[in-house]
Simulated assay, not measured.
Amino acid sequence: MTKQKVQGNQVDPYTRCTHYHSTVDIIAIKFYCCNEYYACYYCHQELANHTTSKWPKNQWNERAILCGNCHHELTIHDYMNASACPQCESSFNEKCIHHFHLYFDT
Rank of each mutant, 00 (worst) to 15 (best):
C43H: 03
E73K: 11
H101E: 00
K57Y: 13
N49F: 12
C33L: 10
K3M: 13
Q10A: 13
P56N: 11
M1V: 11
G68S: 09
Q10P: 06
Q10Y: 05
T2C: 12
T15G: 07
T15H: 04
Y32R: 10
T23C: 08
C70P: 12
N35V: 01
N69V: 11
E94W: 02
F104E: 00
T75D: 03
Y41L: 06
N9H: 04
K57R: 15
F104H: 09
N61W: 00
K3T: 15
R16I: 01
F31C: 02
H19Q: 01
E46K: 13
N69F: 11
E62T: 08
H72T: 09
R63D: 10
A48E: 14
H98N: 14
M1Y: 05
Q4I: 15
H44Q: 10
Q59M: 12
L66W: 00
I97W: 03
Y41E: 01
L47Q: 10
D12T: 06
Y103G: 06
Y20I: 01
Y79F: 15
E89Y: 08
K3P: 12
H19W: 02
N69T: 13
S90R: 09
D25V: 01
S90D: 01
L47A: 02
Q4H: 10
E73Q: 07
L66Q: 08
W60E: 03
H101A: 13
N9F: 05
Y41C: 06
Q87A: 15
V6I: 12
Y37A: 05
E36S: 14
F92M: 11
S22A: 06
R63W: 00
P86E: 07
C34T: 05
L66S: 11
A28D: 02
T51H: 12
M80A: 14
I76M: 07
I97D: 08
K30Y: 05
N58D: 02
I97T: 15
N61K: 14
L47S: 05
V11S: 04
C33G: 07
D78N: 15
Y103L: 04
F31N: 03
C33D: 03
C70Y: 04
M1S: 13
